[in-house]
Nucleic acid binder design. Structure first.
Lengths: 417, 417
DNA sequence: AGACTTTTTTCGAGCCTCGAAAAAAGTGTG
DNA sequence: CACACTTTTTTCGAGGCTCGAAAAAAGTCT
């Protein structure tokens, strides 16, 4: 049930809008903010002078020497010293962390190889804690209060972003990372799905193309999806995940990594492509890992001649096409961004995909559905996590009004909502 | 882009909450409203005395003679004379209309058989206009201003509720009903999908069970779905529809009414069950209509012995189960309400459905997914339309503050949002 | 009849946004 | 170089809205 609105809620919202304008624009003048928000100049003036006094915004006069007449606009930007956020990215055999200032500038980073599949539960957690501790204690932080930690994982989280429920990178399940890390560091933490973070990054990278409705598909060992509908990240009701890879393509079909049969992933994941290309039975247990070079070799072979390799990519395209068709039956077609290793082989996948989608209800306008390939999956994940963490802080700061260097304890309740 | 919030927006929202509390509760005291909304008693007092003065709320002292001590609560209810709404329901071979007062009481109704599939486009429209005109001119309305018309159709509408894009009940497509009827009557109109309206009705009927997340499935000649996620009706980005019936069950499988192959509907719609039960090939053109008695006979035969009829229902269950499994992979499991003719045969469908769902990713907790059968599809549709129309008015009235007897022209812009 | 309880209204205070006017900080021009 | 002009930003009083506290209202209980 929505709750009544009090006077300070109003101010909070409007403060948030000013901060959001600065977050989006980097440099915005008060006049521009007034235009964006539709609020009066007086209001913007009042809010921004508050924010400046609180150390959240910073006046930056540096702009190109204003060739226009009239009083020059004063740029407002997010104050780099206002906060620090840390992101932790856990994927197969790798753990990485990045710390950024409030303006989004990189402070420092670390990357480390781990045998995630073999690591005992508490050692996995300990590695995360240790890497986070190094970030928090690093001198580059220089007194900026750490106001948010975001942990992105390959796998499924709960809808509140508190726990990792399941992941292909480890046999362990239901790890309450948020609680564990909050207890350790007293900084609010959320756990996020990696595909969602990539979708998040796309919104910031290219807001023109990726605005209200789009789909990010991660084509790698498994199949991930981040879905933005009507301007909001779409998540499950209990879990993070739009588990597109585990929609059913062929009932009782190929064996999937998840143990069930006929999932899209069992036709379109790296292991499935490899399995089909190398003549194995589709009921055969999926291979654990396939390195980049091997997949590239498969793609090259498929491009060279019409053999089993090309057929394997075709099957993958067909599975993705029917899956997208079913998805589009539910949500209507939207632009698709392809990310991940096998996005590079989209030329091999596309024909069968388009053909399949045209045979489904979602394929009404199959020709007009746009697919774009976004390389550099790792950078995308980093950006998405960073923006998720920073916008959390934006809301936290606007919510309290008191910038709250003292950290997490009480603020959590309002943040997790 | 969200827009800044001004002072009157605040009042508007809080007024809306007061009205919503009265809509939900029927009879609410000011104290109860204060508790529900979290606003202060003074604020509620001010708002409700405004609303009473404007003729939107009504004090009703009738309550059971308050066995408690202290000053008795004064009930507030929606003023029946504040407005009138009309709903029009267009389905296969039938057109019905209902008018209701602002409190939701039935004023009068009409039902009429039409050969919708044979009717030319403009005659179909003319029938709608004529029936609406009879409602508007009927004496039962007694001067209540008609503030909203809702037209529910079997089929797909655009996301804004302006047009019928496609429907199984007529060969005509893209009929801009909202524009046509608004031009005719100068009352704001929306066009809605029938399954969505049934889901809407369930929320009002049983808010305990059908609250934030649930699924209404319409099992009849075709398969419809209304989806409520996180408390909001889920619609496509361009169309109304969660076209569950046209998700792909078996690529290149049975021939669907939509002309494509392998849709869930082509296994679970009435025509598909009939086709399978009577030994026809699944590539055979679907029958146009199958009456209730015939379907009941099939179900009885299926219950009597394990023959082709039972197998047909089993196939339907399997298709629905795999479809729900795929859906649950995307949105996580949620309670399911079954509506429509074939919901009565759910005993024949359920075993195969549950078995199928358990073999999918969404079936993690397949045992715990609750299915309930909601009979009386027609009443459900009527209630849903009524509530949709009335809550539209709630928002229109709260939005303007001036009750706006003069009608639609300007208010549309704010309503269609 | 008077004490007690609970609901509702009244009233002054405190915020917040707004519009208009003033101040500020430049450019263009003779 | 002073002055007109333009555009941005701040200031200031007015008007709305919500809140808390106190008062009024409308019953029950003894």
């Amino acid at each position: 049930m929505t709750v009544g609105m009090r006077h300070d809620d109003l101010r909070r919202r409007n403060r948030a809008m000013v901060i959001a304008a600065a977050r989006r624009g980097g440099q915005v003048s008060r006049t521009e903010i007034a235009a964006i928000t539709g609020l009066s100049h007086s209001t913007i003036s009042a809010i921004s002078s508050d924010l400046i006094a609180e150390g959240i915004l910073l006046e930056t006069r540096q702009e190109p020497p204003a060739l226009k007449r009239g009083r020059p606009q004063v740029g407002l930007a997010l104050h780099p010293l206002a906060a620090c956020v840390v992101t932790l990215m856990l994927s197969l055999n790798s753990l990485a962390a990045v710390s950024l200032d409030y303006a989004g500038n990189l402070l420092e980073e670390e990357q480390r190889r781990l045998d995630t599949r073999a690591l005992p539960r508490d050692e996995l957690i300990a590695e995360c804690v240790a890497m986070l501790r190094r970030r928090l204690e690093h001198k580059a932080r220089e007194g900026r209060p750490v106001l948010r930690i975001v942990l992105a994982i390959q796998g499924i989280t709960d809808a509140q972003g508190r726990s990792m429920l399941w992941s292909p990178i480890t046999p362990h399940t239901d790890i309450p990372f948020a609680d564990l890390l909050e207890a350790e560091f007293s900084v609010p933490v959320t756990v996020e799905n990696d595909s969602n973070m990539m979708a998040e990054a796309l919104r910031w990278r290219d807001p023109q193309r990726y605005r209200d409705d789009f789909i990010a598909i991660l084509l790698s060992h498994g199949i991930g999806m981040g879905l933005v509908l009507k301007g909001a990240m779409f998540t499950g009701t209990h879990s993070s995940g739009v588990e597109f890879g585990h929609m059913v393509h062929r009932p009782d079909g190929a064996l999937c990594r998840c143990g069930r049969r006929g999932c899209i992933e069992a036709y379109a994941g790296s292991y499935a492509i490899w399995r089909n290309a190398s003549g194995h039975d589709e009921s055969e247990e999926p291979r654990g890992d396939i390195d980049e070079a091997e997949m590239r070799a498969l793609a090259d072979a498929a491009r060279a001649q019409d053999g089993p390799e090309r057929q394997a990519f075709r099957i993958a395209g067909e599975a993705l096409g029917f899956g997208l068709g079913s998805l589009f039956a539910l949500i209507d077609p939207a632009p698709v961004a392809l990310v991940g290793l096998n996005a590079a082989a989209f030329d091999l996948i596309e024909p069968a995909l388009r053909e399949a989608i045209a045979r489904t209800a979602g394929g009404h306008h199959s020709g007009s559905i746009s697919f774009s390939i976004e390389p550099d999956q790792i950078a995308l994940l980093r950006e998405g996590c960073a923006m998720r963490a920073l916008t959390h802080v934006d809301h936290q700061i606007f919510a309290s009004g008191r910038s709250g260097t003292e950290g997490a304890d009480r603020s959590q309740s309002s943040l997790m909502a």
